[in-house]
Simulated assay, not measured.
Amino acid sequence: MEIRETQEELKALLRQEKDATRHEKLQVLYWLKTQTVETVLSAAVRLGKHRTTIQRWLSSYRAGGIEELLFQKPRSGRPRIMNPETVERLSKELQEPE
């Protein structure tokens, strides 16, 4: 597999990344670029992920590059019961002694 970014670019991205999942995705690319791992299976074992997860990541990288690999869909879920204004007002009230 051809990885378009250089080792230095990948290393810089790894240092900057705060999100754990995105960091792992970059780590796999770095390992493949530096030939630390030779197969998807060895990368999966080393990272503690399933082989198909790594294959899915690499498939998205092939499809759209680093932007597609690091893109994270907005999390869906149940909306909060209280709106932000109510939460802010409550936190202010809780800080008062009475």
Rank of each mutant, 00 (worst) to 15 (best):
G65S: 00
S59L: 06
F71V: 09
W57V: 01
E2K: 13
Q27N: 05
E67R: 10
K49N: 07
E2S: 01
T86N: 00
V87E: 08
T21L: 12
V40K: 07
R51D: 14
S59R: 10
R62P: 05
A43Y: 00
L13E: 07
V37W: 06
V87Y: 03
K73R: 15
T52Y: 07
T6E: 04
E38W: 06
M82L: 15
Q27G: 03
V87C: 06
F71C: 11
A43E: 02
T39I: 10
I66M: 04
R89T: 13
S60I: 05
T53V: 13
L47Y: 03
A12E: 14
E17M: 13
I3C: 04
G77E: 02
T21E: 14
L90A: 11
E98K: 10
L26I: 07
V28G: 01
R78I: 00
E85P: 04
S76C: 08
L13S: 01
L47S: 12
L47E: 03
Q35H: 10
P74A: 09
T34N: 03
L58H: 02
I54K: 00
L41E: 13
L29P: 00
S59H: 07
Q72S: 15
V45W: 06
L26Y: 02
S91C: 13
L29F: 01
L70C: 09
H23M: 06
R62T: 01
Q35T: 04
G77F: 04
S76H: 10
T36Y: 04
R78N: 04
E2R: 13
L90H: 09
E8V: 12
S76P: 01
E96F: 13
Y30R: 09
V87R: 06
E85G: 03
L10K: 03
A20Y: 14
L13R: 08
E24G: 11
I3F: 09
K25Y: 04
E8I: 12
R89G: 05
W31N: 02
Q7F: 07
T36G: 00
A20V: 15
T34A: 08
K73Q: 15
L10H: 07
A12Y: 06
T86S: 10
A20M: 13
W31H: 06
S76I: 13
T21D: 08
Q16I: 10
L69C: 04
L32T: 05
W31G: 02
T6I: 08
Q35P: 05
L70I: 14
T53E: 12
I81K: 14
P79F: 02
R80K: 14
A12C: 05
L70E: 07
Q7C: 05
K33E: 08
L26W: 05
R51F: 06
V40Q: 04
P74W: 05
R56H: 08
R89F: 08
W31I: 07
Q95C: 14
V40N: 01
K33H: 12
T53P: 03
E96G: 13
T36D: 03
N83R: 15
Y61I: 03
T52F: 08
I66E: 00
L47P: 06
Q27W: 10
L69R: 03
E17P: 03
S60Q: 09
N83E: 11
P97F: 11
V37C: 13
W31M: 10
R51A: 00
T39Q: 10
V40G: 01
S59D: 07
I54S: 01
R15T: 09
G77H: 00
K92V: 12
V87D: 05
Q27S: 10
M1V: 11
L70P: 06
S60T: 07
M82E: 15
R75I: 08
Q72Y: 11
